[in-house]
């Protein structure tokens, strides 16, 4: 009965941390994707991108909403999104990386989607009913995200020489930011033990399979696993996050207390 003996406050803190991590990933990636609005290479892509961003923002509302509830200090999803500074954000570094060309945007999406898909799939079986319910809804959306990004990675990898080169460069550039998805700390361990979340490192095999299969089909070369950047999950970010927040939080910061 190791779990029952745990300190409920510690459990609550770990749960809040997890919810903010998963919510911030959706929020920051949704922000990045929405930056493309009206500027993508084809009308169908404009539609798909705004759809993806919309799904991610919807998921943000659910995850951060629950985070506020768990925390019990009266903070809403909006409070968490708009009134925290960078060091309180818990998204992985990969999702805050700049969009770059469309190939980099798609590759970032694919590497994230493959992981997001597996995470949500596992969370559908969470011992916390509230988490299982959000995961159920988000999983449907993310299955579609993964179908789309995987399909495009393959087609562009095995397209023209130029599209192949761009996709390979995108892959090489993002690769050192993928390791963070599989890192874990004491907070994760607490929740894993309670059956609330899957062990982060446990998702690696499945992710490797999805990624390897798509890369092979797209004639892309999987980079060697070298040094992996990390820090976002504990609030240490790249310089990019500050600018995202400056833009995103402008109105809430400039007009404190106003309702919109």
């Amino acid at each position: 009965m190791a779990t029952a003996a745990r300190d409920p406050a510690a459990r609550q803190a770990a749960l809040f941390e997890f919810l903010v991590r998963v919510g911030d990933n959706a929020l920051i990636l949704g922000h990045r994707v929405s930056e493309w609005c009206g500027h993508s290479p084809a009308l169908e892509e404009d539609i798909a991108l705004s759809n993806t961003a919309l799904d991610l923002i919807g998921q943000t509302q659910l995850w951060l909403g629950l985070a506020g509830e768990v925390e019990g200090k009266g903070r809403s999803a909006d409070d968490l999104a708009y009134l925290r500074d960078g060091y309180d954000f818990r998204n992985i570094l990969l999702v805050e990386r700049p969009n770059g060309d469309f190939g980099r945007t798609l590759m970032r999406q694919f590497l994230f989607d493959a992981w997001h898909y597996l995470l949500l799939k596992a969370l559908k079986g969470s011992s916390d009913q509230r988490i299982a319910e959000i995961a159920e809804k988000a999983f449907k959306e993310v299955s579609y995200h993964l179908d789309r990004s995987r399909d495009l990675i393959i087609r562009l990898g095995d397209g023209t020489a130029e599209s192949h080169r761009r996709m390979q460069e995108a892959l090489d550039e993002h690769w050192p930011f993928t390791g963070e998805m599989f890192t874990s700390d004491a907070l994760d361990a607490e929740l894993v033990e309670a059956g609330i979340i899957p062990a982060p490192q446990g998702l690696k095999t499945g992710w490797d399979e999805i990624v390897a299969e798509a890369l092979t089909e797209g004639t892309l070369k999987k980079p060697a696993d070298g040094y992996m950047h990390k820090g976002g999950r504990r609030g240490v970010h790249t310089e990019h996050l500050g600018f995202i927040l400056t833009e995103m939080q402008f109105l809430q910061r400039a007009y404190p207390g106003a309702t919109w």
Binding site: E35, H39, Q61, E247, W260
Partner: peptide, 26 residues
């Protein structure tokens, strides 16, 4: 018309307003 509205998606003041604007632009 996506451009003048897209100009404010990243700065929308709440998550709900952001979602509504995204849906509209879509």
């Amino acid at each position: 018309g996506q451009l003048p509205e897209g100009n404010w998606i990243t700065r929308a003041p709440t998550l709900e307003r952001k979602a509504i604007l995204l849906a509209k632009v879509q």
